[in-house]
Computed example of a mutant assay.
Amino acid sequence: MNSEAPLAPSAAPPVRFDTKIAVLLRVDLEPWQRLNVTAFLVSGLGSRLPEVIGEPYEDADGTPYLPMFRQPVLVFEGTKEILTAAHSRALSRALPRAVFTADLFATGHDEANRAAVRAVHREQLDVVGLSVYGPRNAVDKVLKGARMHP
């Protein structure tokens, strides 16, 4: 008889969410940049949209952990042109979004990041990453032309 606890709870039927959390990254980013941009972008969604955050976690010993997103975050990639189009579509649909521009790689703190974005007109932003949240079909339309990150 195996006395070890199971690694995961019993399999439940898959949940299909009506909403989608997605991150779109430019294909020419270095691996460290992809990770950094993704982390920054999703922090924006989680901080402003309480409905995307689940309940806090707790292990079997009662140790508390912070809550996380209640649904998967899907990561996509695309060319500069795909990101520019996705940015425009997200704005035209008024979906909650966060943006990361190439200029932010040269800054070192939040105030400088915001100043770097504020200094550039929307049409001139060099978007290297975009996160978006909303109804599944609307997010899918924003991501048109992008592919799942490998």
Rank of each mutant, 00 (worst) to 15 (best):
S43I: 00
A11W: 06
D18L: 14
S43K: 04
A12Q: 14
S43T: 09
T38M: 05
G62T: 04
F40T: 14
T79S: 15
L91Y: 00
L74F: 11
V52K: 03
N2E: 08
L125F: 13
A12K: 12
F40K: 13
R89A: 13
F69C: 05
P64Y: 10
R118F: 06
L24F: 12
V23D: 05
V120S: 10
G44K: 02
A116D: 09
V37C: 10
P13H: 03
E77C: 05
I82D: 00
P56N: 09
T107M: 06
N113P: 08
H121F: 08
R136Q: 06
L25P: 13
S92Q: 13
G134M: 08
L7Q: 10
R122E: 14
D59S: 02
S3W: 07
K144W: 03
V73G: 13
L41D: 11
T19N: 10
I82L: 03
V15Q: 11
V73M: 12
R118P: 00
R48Q: 10
N2V: 02
D61V: 01
T38I: 01
G129M: 04
L95K: 07
P50A: 12
D61K: 09
N137F: 04
P9L: 01
Q124S: 15
T84S: 13
L45R: 04
A12M: 06
Y65V: 02
T38R: 02
T19A: 01
D28Y: 08
A11D: 10
A102F: 11
G62A: 06
F105C: 04
R26A: 05
V73S: 12
P150K: 14
S47I: 02
S3R: 08
G44F: 07
Y65A: 13
M68I: 14
E111I: 07
K144Q: 12
V127L: 06
E111Q: 11
G145T: 02
E58C: 15
P6T: 03
L83V: 03
